[in-house]
């Protein structure tokens, strides 16, 4: 834990990347997120923890406006990235999502080749002018996704043929390929075995150097291992937010303490 503590001190010096004020999310009549205020630091791994159904994924999906794709979902309040309100009328959710990448719970590679999986994002956003540039982007993304060595000889094999852990790292590489600033991860390891999980966690720790990472996780050990900041959600409320080691060693709210000691959830 010692090295983590030094890291969190570093992190506090970072600028705020995402700031949310009085965010409410409704699914039809259900009030899923109640009055959430949070400031997420740049180049930090922030973990959202909490029992199932507490709204952490919903809140995560508000950050790249994926909730827009759900008809009955309504978001109120103010979410800013680099000071810019992302729900402002002149913000195009399509461009926002290119800057705010997302990795899902279940690996979801497209039924295309590994190469095409990575190249898809850069292609639709026009990031590469030539084939050589595209090759470079694909290689760089796969290297950053820590999967290059496993797939470099079969870039044109289908992405769906990889193992679960490889698929998830492929999806992370795919998200990185569009050069986002922020990477949202919705329980990225819940479908993976322990070995694949530790590979992905290691990768997340490396990603912190260039990206702001927000990760939703059910595993408190995982939150403690990879994150510098932790937010605890309960029944749609953000109960407590602070440095990860403070949350886990010295929680202020009794609900947080109950959860991390296994009494609720």
């Amino acid at each position: 834990m010692d090295d983590l503590r030094t890291v969190s001190k570093d992190v506090d010096a970072n600028n705020t990347k995402i700031s949310a004020k009085n965010v409410q999310v409704y699914y039809g009549d259900t009030h899923a997120i109640k009055d959430v205020n949070v400031e997420i630091k740049e180049r930090t791994v922030t973990a959202f923890i909490g029992p199932s159904g507490c709204g952490k994924s919903t809140f995560l999906r508000s950050i790249n406006r994926m909730n827009d794709t759900i008809d009955i979902c309504r978001v109120e309040g103010d979410i800013r990235i680099d000071g810019k309100d992302i729900y402002d009328r002149d913000v195009d959710p399509v461009q926002l999502r290119a800057r705010v990448g997302m990795v899902f719970q279940k690996p979801n590679p497209f039924p295309k080749s590994i190469y095409d999986n990575i190249a898809y994002g850069p292609k639709i956003h026009g990031l590469a002018k030539t084939k050589a540039e595209m090759d470079e982007i694909v290689e760089k993304s796969l290297r950053r996704g820590a999967i290059w060595n496993e797939v470099k000889d079969r870039l044109h094999a289908p992405g769906t043929g990889l193992s679960g852990g490889q698929q998830q790292r492929l999806c992370i590489a795919r998200a990185i390929a569009t050069e986002p600033d922020v990477l949202l991860m919705d329980e990225p390891c819940s479908a993976l075995d322990p070995i694949a999980t530790s590979q992905v966690e290691e990768l997340i720790d490396q990603l912190r150097e260039s990206y702001t990472v927000v990760i939703v996780t059910h595993s408190m050990q995982q939150a403690a291992r990879v994150s510098q900041k932790t937010a605890f959600f309960h029944l749609g409320n953000l109960v407590e937010y602070g440095n990860t080691d403070d949350i886990f060693t010295n929680p202020k709210d009794p609900r947080t303490e109950s959860y991390i000691s296994g009494r609720i959830g």
């Binding site: 399509v94 461009q95 999502r97 997302m102 899902f104 295309k112 898809y120 639709i124 956003h125």
Partner: peptide, 27 residues
């Protein structure tokens, strides 16, 4: 076509038309 594929494309910043043409339709 699984919702996950649709979400995956949308989250990359694909428009709905691009999602349909490049991901949903081939699948």
């Amino acid at each position: 076509v699984p919702r996950a594929l649709r979400d995956g494309a949308l989250a990359l910043g694909a428009t709905r038309a691009e999602t349909v043409m490049n991901v949903l339709f081939p699948a």
